[in-house]
């Protein structure tokens, strides 16, 4: 194996270590990905489809639904939002802080194109429910097979 030293004449052993580390974590991520249930991204979402529509649920506790930005373009749905950190009062301090805060953006690939006029979103008890109807022209059509009686 040749050491590649971009833009430098000396070989940096720590740079090489960092590269190995990156490769290893990439490998570990790939293994985690195939386990299926958690992709590890925030927010976590689930998706169901039938002939007429796709339904999505997204776990988003403590988000102002008016500040959620949901866009659909072709078959990509993008969700942007923010979880605000409540400011501490005077003389108030954290004993424990486990809940994450900050902005997030996540895109999902949909199994079909969506009639964007009819998309509906509902936010209830910290879960976002999205209904994404198929476009009429994208709906599956049954094709009747005629028997050749000749």
């Amino acid at each position: 194996m040749m050491w590649q030293v971009p833009g430098g004449t000396y070989w940096n052993p720590f740079g090489e270590l960092a590269r190995v580390n990156r490769e290893m974590s990439r490998l570990a991520d790939a293994f985690r990905g195939v386990q299926g249930i958690d992709a590890g991204d925030f927010p976590a979402a689930s998706m169901w489809t039938n002939e007429d529509q796709t339904l999505m649920t997204v776990e988003l506790p403590d988000v102002n639904p008016e500040e959620l930005d949901i866009t659909v373009k072709d078959t990509v749905l993008t969700l942007r939002g923010k979880r605000e950190e409540e400011a501490l009062g005077e003389n108030e301090k954290y004993i424990r802080q486990e809940r994450g805060t900050g902005s997030f953006v996540r895109s999902f690939s949909l199994p079909h194109r969506v009639d964007s006029e009819k998309v509906s979103a509902e936010y209830r008890n910290g879960i976002l429910y999205l209904t994404l109807p198929r476009r009429d022209m994208d709906k599956p059509r049954k094709i009747a097979v005629k028997a050749d009686t000749a």
């Binding site: 776990e59 988003l60 506790p61 403590d62 409540e86 501490l88 009062g89 005077e90 003389n91 108030e92 301090k93 954290y94 004993i95 424990r96 802080q97 486990e98 809940r99 008890n125 910290g126 879960i127």
Partner: peptide, 18 residues
């Protein structure tokens, strides 16, 4: 959970979506 303490009270916030 987040737990925050002030002079007069302790506030506990827990994420339980759904």
């Amino acid at each position: 959970v987040d737990i925050r303490e002030s002079v007069s009270d302790v506030v506990l916030l827990a994420d339980m979506p759904g």
